[in-house]
Design a protein around this nucleic acid. Sequence first.
DNA 1: CACGAGACCTGTTCGC
DNA 2: TGCGAACAGGTCTCGT
Length: 275
Amino acid sequence: MPELPEVETISRMMQFGAGDSPPVIGRLISDTKVLWHKTLAQPSPQMFRKRLVGRSIKEVGRRGKYIVCDLTHSFMLMHLRMSGEILVGEAAEPLGSHPRLVIYFEDGLQMSFSDARKFGRVWLLDDPGSIFTKLGPEPLGDDLTPQEFSRRLVSKKRRIKTLLLDQAFLAGVGNIYADEALHLAKIHPLFSSHELNPIQAESLLLAIREVLKKGIETNGASIDWVYRGGDYQNHFRVYGRVGEPCEVCGMTIERIVVGQRGTYFCPHCQSNPPG
DNA sequence: CACGAGACCTGTTCGC
DNA sequence: TGCGAACAGGTCTCGT
């Protein structure tokens, strides 16, 4: 389900609360329950419980598409993959239609990791570095300059769409925002990364930042039953719009498959030869 | 190194 | 209406 803006929205919801969802930070953990064993990547359910009970989440943040819970002496990472969601509330039964892992707090609140497709994962680690070192830079980070981005693009010989989805290249961009950014930057999804000149590289980085920021502002995209509450789907330029006219030039938006992912683009605006 | 295919999974939507 | 196929916000692994 979620890409950077959706994960950011969820991590803020956990940190600050949102709507009828109270914040989870600072609450004493009284129990944990693992309903689908594969959801907990590490450690064992028994060790997970032992290490969490009596502790509390100090802070919630995000790195790439990972939700990062700081437990002071350890970190709990959560990755929602395609259909994971976090539900916080007071209830006797685990929340959500497909609860896989639940954390109970002493004050009666619970946080449920619900996940229809069972792809999502949770880790409890002393040091999240082992996972973070595999991730590329944060697209919204100041340290990623257009020059550095350009260097990274040219150092690879990949289709640009595929490269944007590679979390080791850039952390947080997924299928929706990759297509949206490529359209905004007027770059064909099959264009070869090493053929992008510094001007195109900079415009692509700015486009990525623009769509991600807009995504965060609108609480992410809600395109089906999986993730609700977002509004970015009402701002899509190309994603899911096969057969509809491009709002820039009027040409009909097309769908192709790139790296086994549905890819939407405008053949007129993004007409630079795939190289 | 880059790419495609297959796995991992279930739920919804599409096409006949 | 019904039923199977296609498709879905992600990532890993294997073979070429």
